[in-house]
Every structure is written in structure tokens, then in C-alpha cells.
């Protein structure tokens, strides 16, 4: 009985399948970066790869708050609200950490989780 595919055809098919698998590899290994998201009024306004920050800088995502960024860390550095809980919470440096200025509805969170799925507080 004659074969539908020759050996060369099978090699080509396997090669194409292998190449298509290679396309997924970047997605499998890109979860290690420390990426911070800034949300203002529920909308994400900034996404910052903290591992790739070169030089310290600060910006104001909304009037009344200032966020400072340095390599591997991000924090609220100024807030006009009374309690300053967001400023007092200090630098965020690990996945899953979150800081919020509730009066101004600004939230910083470092994406992903380290060892826990969520924190209770």
C-alpha cells in the first residue's frame, strides 16, 4: 500500500509545527519582570517595567499625588490628602504589593503574585 506522505513531507510538517511552537516561547518566559501598574479612577494609566528603569524620576498621575520611580521600586512620594497613608506605605518592591491614595482614587500595584494569590488586611 502506497503511503500518503513521504518521509520528507513528514519532516516538513514537523518543522512547521516546531516553528509555530517557538512563537509561544516568549509568552512562557516573560513573567519574571517587575511591572507596576498605576490606576486612576479605575483606569490603568501607566505600566512601568521597574527592572528597566534608568535613573530616578517622578510624575503626577493626578493632581494631588506624586509617584516616584527608581529601578526595582515605586511609591507615592507626595499626596495632599490628610492621612498620607499612601506615602507612609513606602516603596513597593515585590509582586502583589499595592498602595493606594483613596481620596484621589489612585492605586499603584506591582503586577503578578509572589507566593500568595491575595492578601487579607
Amino acid at each position: 500500500m502506497r503511503k500518503l506522505f513521504r518521509r520528507a513531507d513528514i519532516i516538513i510538517i514537523i518543522a512547521v509545527l516546531f516553528l509555530s511552537f517557538l512563537l509561544f516561547i516568549p509568552n512562557l518566559f516573560n513573567n519574571d519582570s517587575l511591572v507596576a501598574s498605576v490606576y486612576v479612577d479605575g483606569e490603568q494609566t501607566e505600566e512601568i517595567n521597574l527592572d528597566k528603569v534608568e535613573g530616578d524620576y517622578a510624575f503626577s498621575p493626578k493632581k494631588g499625588t506624586v509617584i516616584s520611580v527608581k529601578k526595582g521600586a515605586i511609591c507615592f512620594s507626595e499626596a495632599t490628602c490628610r492621612d498620607k497613608i499612601c506615602v507612609d506605605s513606602g516603596w513597593l518592591t515585590a509582586k502583589g504589593q499595592t498602595s493606594a491614595c483613596l481620596p484621589e482614587r489612585v492605586v499603584i500595584t506591582i503586577n503578578g503574585t509572589d507566593k500568595t494569590d491575595m492578601m487579607t488586611y
Binding site: A94, Q97, M119
Partner: peptide, 15 residues
């Protein structure tokens, strides 16, 4: 199944 961190009351950014 979830792993839930309990906040360290002395350092609320950590469990």
C-alpha cells in the same frame, strides 16, 4: 485552591 497571605501588622506590605 488559593494561598492567602495574612498581612504583617507591623509592615503591611508584607505577609
Amino acid at each position: 485552591d488559593f494561598t492567602i497571605g495574612i498581612t504583617n501588622p507591623e509592615n503591611s506590605q508584607n505577609s
